[in-house]
């Protein structure tokens, strides 16, 4: 029958690399023996002494890790920050793009909107789990590999900008943009299923032409997702000329197709217009003109606002520097 010491030594030694195992087991036997002897000398019975000595040693796996300098953490201080920065970057950049791409692919392949959204959310969660797992696995292996991998050296250029008074303003901008964009995307999807008018079969008549789902409405939904990323970029870095450029591109990408679809009569659903009794006499022309002008004015204003904020931001930086 194996003694408690045998069992303890075996349990500890299996956590040690094989080449060191025999030596380690002998060292441990010596230590347990000497510590038990000391307890016996101070009046314990041999059985009590063995139990007390082993209890004192604690968990064999922890003891072995301590002996061979193996880390008892998944990712230690040396790699933690690199791991954390990379994981945040992946979750912020890869996750939304991949999820949006899945959504677009689902919509283009003609799936129902609700199903496409459901599936892209499920895929998004799965992508997030994969990103977290594989990144952590790689770092856990690096942590345990004997050769030291060069960690990115920190330099002063990596210092973030000090948040100034304008910064809190950026946050409210971000929240406003996010709420508006989510509402807008929701409205595009909502109008497909709910309408003030119903056809003879009692089905709702969508406001927008349902044929647009083959390409243009998914396109606009992806643009909305990109606008959301853009709003986050503005919040993160503040306005600069690169973001002004991106803002121009996004606005043109939105306004030009929307205006073109509207002017060629493909934006709104004919059935809906009929049900609403369009055109409403002389008012019709005026309303159409107002809508067309809005497609031009709103993006122009958005671009101008970005430029104004960038110029002001530059001014504020100069003032701060002068002080």
């Amino acid at each position: 029958m194996n003694t408690l010491t045998d069992r303890y030594v075996w349990a500890a030694a299996r956590n040690v690399p094989e080449v060191q195992r025999a030596e380690f087991a002998n060292e441990l036997r010596e230590r347990i023996g000497d510590e038990s002897d000391a307890l016996i000398a101070s009046g314990h019975s041999p059985a009590d002494a063995e139990v007390a000595a082993l209890t004192d040693l604690g968990d064999p796996a922890a003891l072995a890790a301590h002996y061979v300098d193996r880390p008892l953490h998944l990712i230690g201080p040396r790699y933690f920050l690199t791991w954390w920065r990379l994981l945040k970057l992946l979750l912020v950049v890869v996750l939304p793009i991949a999820t949006a791409a899945v959504l677009l692919a689902q919509l283009l392949s003609g799936d129902a909107v609700g199903q496409a959204i459901g599936e892209s959310i499920a895929t998004g969660i799965s992508i997030a789990v994969h990103l977290g797992f594989w990144t952590t696995l790689v770092f856990a292996i690096i942590e345990r590999s004997p050769s030291t991998v060069k960690v990115e050296i920190w330099t002063p250029e990596q210092l973030p900008q000090v948040p100034d008074a304008g910064r809190s303003h950026w946050l409210s901008d971000l929240i406003a943009s996010a709420v508006f964009l989510v509402f807008f995307a929701g409205a595009i999807i909502w109008q497909q299923f709910f309408s003030v008018y119903a056809d003879d079969a009692g089905q709702p008549i969508p406001l927008l032409d349902p044929e647009l789902w083959s390409f243009w409405l998914p396109y606009f939904l992806v643009l909305i997702a990109l606008e959301l990323l853009f709003a986050i970029a503005v919040y993160t870095w503040g306005w600069n000329w690169w973001l002004v450029g991106a803002n121009v591109v996004l606005n043109v990408a939105f306004a030009v197709p929307a205006l073109w679809l509207f002017l060629t009569g493909r934006l709104f659903n004919e059935d809906y217009l009929d049900a609403a009794g369009w055109p409403w006499a002389e008012a019709g022309g005026i309303i159409a003109t107002i809508i067309a002008v809005m497609f031009v004015v709103i993006p122009t204003w958005d671009v101008a606002e970005g430029i104004i904020k960038t110029v002001r931001g530059r001014g504020a930086t100069r003032v701060t520097a002068a002080v």
Partner: peptide, 11 residues
Amino acid sequence: DANTLYPLLRR
């Protein structure tokens, strides 16, 4: 402490 000394000797 023994838990410090034994691993230290090894190191």
